[in-house]
Design a protein around this nucleic acid. Structure first.
Lengths: 218, 218
DNA sequence: TTTGAAGTATTAACAGTGTTAAGTATCTTT
DNA sequence: AAAGATACTTAACACTGTTAATACTTCAAA
């Protein structure tokens, strides 16, 4: 009886601890999406969960620890978006849809994207704790790789190594996303712009360019 | 006589002022290359030129102003590397060499590359002062674009819009550079790695992948 | 029931950041 | 010699991430 009671209580404590840990992450995420990465500080997060700044350090080792957890959230979100493509039977069509989802994700969640694929914070955390295996990234890459393999079974991407194709596709998508996000595309002015197509939005233009690459690789 | 003397003195003063401005930039560059971007502060730079931190603000509006000047230095360096390709007559060979130089530049000067194509500091400076025309980037892009046009005159890159090809090439190179720099490639572990080629270094592997893309676009 | 030990949260502080306002020399001009 | 411009510095503001020391609460054993 006594024991059961104790266990119940310590269970509740554990639950409450987990709960606060989650609330800290939620607060961090909210601030992050409101004001961007650079602008959210430990003190900001602490204020929002109504605890002292130092309390956060009882739940997360340091800021990178929070940043890593957020980066994981980002991957969960991306995986969720990717779920719908499982129904597409032909690997090439699936590839095209995955590309569209990837580009759209970056467009709609630039701060998450930055954390997942650009910032060094999360990757430093990986190197300190997981002995150089970036699970989230590896999983995502392998989804792409498997898809390339399937395409090759259908006779596509002939005479190319699958890792080669995967690297090209990922790099191109990543390059397009980041050049766009970091405003390196809109600030470029063409000397000779007779073929400008102003009715197309930048993301549409990017997607079409990528598709024309894919068609060529095919 | 008096006037000449005065002019000479004020000339010297002006020269000294310009000189200090340059010395500040040199100090910034040195620190930047030694310790990286994140780790160099205004106070660091000031200490190195042996002036008070606030003096820097008499020569540069703010830190972004210095960062923008450094970003320009980076472009000068890249342009210098590119100079050698002018002698290559065939546009496709020229393109391949340009790609190699671009990748090598990013590999050897990751901090400069970051400033030129990733960080938002310099581009913010552009938006505040130059009404959205990123000269350095525009010039670099147009070099690529002109090269694509020349290739098409030789019958290459058929049925593709030149801006499309340019975007694909730049994005792929940029994506490869940044994924590598930001350690997103080395931390990925393959589930199925029967075709791993360990005797090749990452930069070599990247270059070869890019060339196989180019051959396919051709 | 008291005592001591965990566990949890806080205050104060450190060492740093970019940046500005105010003050101080020095040198030029009237 | 007095007034003014120029060049520079000191002091300060409002932040940042993070740690050490301290308090408060809860709980188990003596």
């Amino acid at each position: 009886m006594q024991k059961n009671n104790n266990m119940a209580i310590s269970d509740r404590k554990l639950r409450e601890k987990e709960d606060l840990k989650k609330r800290i992450l939620e607060a961090a995420k909210a601030l992050f999406l409101e004001k961007g990465f650079e602008a959210t500080s430990m003190r900001n997060i602490a204020e929002r969960v109504e605890f002292s700044p130092t309390t956060l350090y009882l739940y997360y080792k340091d800021k990178n620890d929070i940043v890593y957890a957020l980066h994981q959230e980002g991957f969960k979100l991306l995986a969720q978006q990717f779920k719908t493509v499982a129904g597409i039977e032909h690997p090439y069509e699936r590839m095209k849809t995955m590309a569209r989802i990837y580009l759209q994700f970056a467009e709609e969640n630039p701060d998450f994207y930055e954390l997942m694929f650009v910032r060094q914070g999360p990757i430093l955390h990986v190197q300190k704790h997981n002995s150089d295996d970036w699970e989230e990234g590896s999983r995502t890459y392998n989804v792409l790789y498997e898809n390339v393999i399937e395409c090759q079974k259908e006779g596509l991407f002939k005479n190319l190594l699958p890792h080669n194709v995967s690297l090209i596709i990922w790099s191109t998508l990543h390059g397009m996303c980041t050049l766009h996000m970091h405003m390196r595309l809109d600030c470029v002015k063409f000397e000779d712009d007779y073929e400008v197509v102003p009715e197309k939005s930048r993301p549409e233009y990017i997607y079409e360019s990528f598709i024309s690459l894919l068609e060529r690789l095919k």
